[in-house]
Amino acid sequence: MCVSKRNWAYKLSNSIKEDHGQPIWCVAFNLIDGTNEDVFASCGAGRATVYQCLPGGKFEILQAYVDADENEEFYACKWSVNPETGAPLLLLAGKRGLLKALDCSTEELSACCEGHGDAINDISVHPTKPTLVLTASRDSALRLWNIKNNVCIMIIHGDGGHLNEVLTIDFHPFHGEQFLSAGMDNTVKIWSLTGMQEHIDSSFDHDASKGKVFHTRQLACPTFSSHKVHFNYVDCVRWIGDLIVSKSVNNRIFIWKPDTKDDLVGTKGLVHLLHEMELEDAHVWFVRFAMDRQCRTLACGTRSGHVFVWDPADLKSKPHAKLKRDAGSKTTVRQTAVSADGSTIISCCDDASIWRWDVQNQ
């Protein structure tokens, strides 16, 4: 494989500590909206903050949100967009099991979806229909929502579903007809929405004000399921094209391909392991990696506060870069965020701190 030479010289350019003092569980760049690619959000405790990355490594706080319920704690944030107005939407979910959408133009709550029986651990947004949103929950189920009208389209749970908390989900980046899920039962599953399009489309026209109840369907059987990749909690799973990248607590990130050639329903769960990336000191769960838009920069944090960076296409086990924080800053990195072009990496930590690294100009 021919891989072009890249600049892996990242420099620590800034850090900030949020005043709530609680772990920040998630950070996410706005990769869905080309006009706001320098904007990222963080969430922790019952708060979310929207930042802009300025030149010279600086941060600017654009907005801050504090939930009205003092018992709320946000575990996941993702970006969407209102297709009618073009307004950026910040999606938040966590301890209370509610999916909320904040319109960053009006600074108002535009959606609140309720249905999960426990906390929500992760969010994924459909690649072409941004009001379709998946959530993964501690109640061992996934739900597909339409945040246009707070409709629960589908509950993904049943005989073939997860047997414990679902920690991580990801829509296929090209067509959105497939999505991944993984969690505390050590399994990675592939689900398909094929044949469900008419039902999904009907959610866009549903009007609850007319007294009608939307019929939520159940999806119980995945097209593929395997526990052969990991032998512990799987806390992060993402697509790279049709390949899968997943992480557990064994200081490894794997790139692999499901074997479904002779097993159309995926009952054997056979996999082809293609590559592994070596982490250090990352044997705790709920530590999640992130990638840029082209999947050429993958960043994952460690328990000691460092961030390791790879190019997944380069097939190197050792990281291309190890990003270090200031001496004495060793709290766990829970999540990273990578800018659209891979030039900026953000990490968030258990001590309420956020750190920024930028590629140095050569």
Results as ranks from 00 to 15, higher is better:
L273Y: 03
V309L: 08
N250G: 04
Y233D: 10
A313R: 07
P258C: 03
N232D: 15
P319T: 01
G301I: 03
S347Q: 00
D341G: 11
A327L: 05
L270T: 11
F254A: 09
D311V: 11
D311H: 13
A290T: 05
A282F: 10
D235H: 12
W355P: 12
G328K: 00
G328D: 00
R325T: 03
D262I: 00
V338A: 02
N251P: 11
T260A: 06
A282T: 06
D350G: 09
S343G: 09
F286A: 03
C236G: 10
L298T: 00
D292P: 13
T260E: 01
C348A: 08
L315G: 14
R334F: 06
L298M: 04
S246M: 02
D235E: 12
V309N: 12
G241A: 10
N250Q: 10
K322A: 01
L298Q: 06
Q335S: 06
W310Q: 04
A327R: 08
G266Q: 11
S347F: 00
N250L: 05
K316E: 15
N251F: 06
S317A: 13
F286I: 07
R238P: 08
A290S: 14
A352D: 07
N250M: 07
L270R: 13
N232E: 14
R252I: 06
T302Q: 07
G241M: 13
T344C: 15
T331K: 03
N250V: 08
V338C: 02
A352M: 08
G266V: 01
V307Y: 02
G342F: 05
P312R: 05
V309H: 11
H275I: 07
P312F: 05
C300W: 03
R303Q: 06
D341P: 10
E276W: 06
I240A: 12
D311K: 12
L274Y: 08
V271A: 03
D262P: 00
E278S: 13
C349Q: 15
G305M: 05
H283K: 14
S347G: 14
V284A: 14
V284C: 14
D242C: 02
S317P: 07
L279I: 03
V338E: 05
M277G: 08
C349H: 15
W239R: 08
G266K: 05
A282M: 10
W310A: 01
E280A: 12
